[in-house]
């Protein structure tokens, strides 16, 4: 499956899960800020990705949990260097450039773009 085909399917899923128009979904769209995704929508998206691509997405795979609550990873609203390293290791599908210079925990959600979703699925499909 090509990256273009993956994007097409991901877009259909987002249109369905987030009730947005197809042309609102670009590779640069941020799931929360641009497409209005809330926390429960991420579970919905995970379920739909699993179904559409025949992949398994274990909890914490796409969006790591327990990072924000760990004082080793987050201090004074900023992600510590150790936390940044952990996020990078666990989320190779996400582009951290730009955020890294001021790693606010409150802005982590904005790293989840449609492009990062497509990259995530691409890696999962390739590993099948």
């Amino acid at each position: 499956m090509t990256r273009e085909e993956i994007f097409g399917k991901v877009r259909t899923i987002l249109v369905d899960a987030l009730a947005v128009d197809e042309d609102e979904v670009t590779l640069d769209s941020v799931l929360t800020k641009d497409l209005g995704a809330e926390s429960i929508d991420f579970l919905d998206i995970v379920f739909k990705l699993e179904q559409a691509f025949g992949i398994k997405i274990p909890q914490g795979d796409l969006f790591p949990d327990n990072v924000a609550q760990d004082p080793e990873y987050v201090k004074d609203g900023k992600v510590t260097p150790k936390g940044v390293a952990t996020l990078k290791a666990r989320m190779p599908h996400v582009d951290f450039a730009g955020w890294e210079s001021n790693p606010e925990i409150g802005k982590v959600a904005e790293l989840f773009t449609v492009r990062s979703l497509v990259s995530f699925v691409e890696a999962k499909v390739a590993a099948k």
């Binding site: 429960i40 949990d65 327990n66 609550q69």
Partner: peptide
């Protein structure tokens, strides 16, 4: 869609 409250991502 249902959420399992104790497994929510906010901790």
């Amino acid at each position: 869609m249902f959420s399992h409250l104790d497994q929510n991502m906010s901790g």
